[in-house]
């Protein structure tokens, strides 16, 4: 049973989304934020998260946040890392600045390949 060639035809984004659903069936797909809020969140991740993880999210003092580095990690734990931070590391909690649904959306986007800022 060789399904590999078939999978290769599925866009990465779709595979990541599928992966996300399989891994975190409890987390319903997050409703997309409004276009304006989307712009704010993209900017926040690129610029403010970027001060430790890099503008291109390839890492800095903090680890890379690229799809290939996040693939093995459960979305649920990534959501809580975003919201609550990681004790013992410099990662702070961001729950004062975003909702849980927005954290889920960010995690989804990170796992799929985070959007660039539009200007």
């Amino acid at each position: 049973m060789n399904c590999r060639p078939y999978i290769n035809h599925i866009p990465d984004r779709a595979v990541a989304a599928l992966f996300l659903c399989l891994l975190a069936p409890a987390a319903a797909p997050a409703a997309d934020p409004s276009p304006e809020r989307t712009r704010e969140l993209v900017r926040m991740v690129r610029q403010d998260c970027g001060s430790c993880h890099g503008l291109t999210l390839k890492g800095g003092l903090g680890p890379p946040l690229l799809p290939e580095t996040l693939r093995e990690k459960p979305a649920e734990s990534l959501r809580y890392t975003v919201l609550l931070g990681r004790p013992g590391t410099p990662m702070p909690p961001w729950n004062a600045f975003m909702t849980e649904a927005e954290a889920d959306w960010i995690v989804q986007q990170l796992m799929a390949g985070f959007p660039e800022e539009t200007r």
């Binding site: 403010d48 001060s51 430790c52 003092l61 931070g85 004790p87 410099p90 702070p92 909690p93």
Partner: peptide, 8 residues
């Protein structure tokens, strides 16, 4: 208190 730090 271990306050969160949003930028080094």
């Amino acid at each position: 208190e271990k306050l969160p730090v949003f930028k080094m």
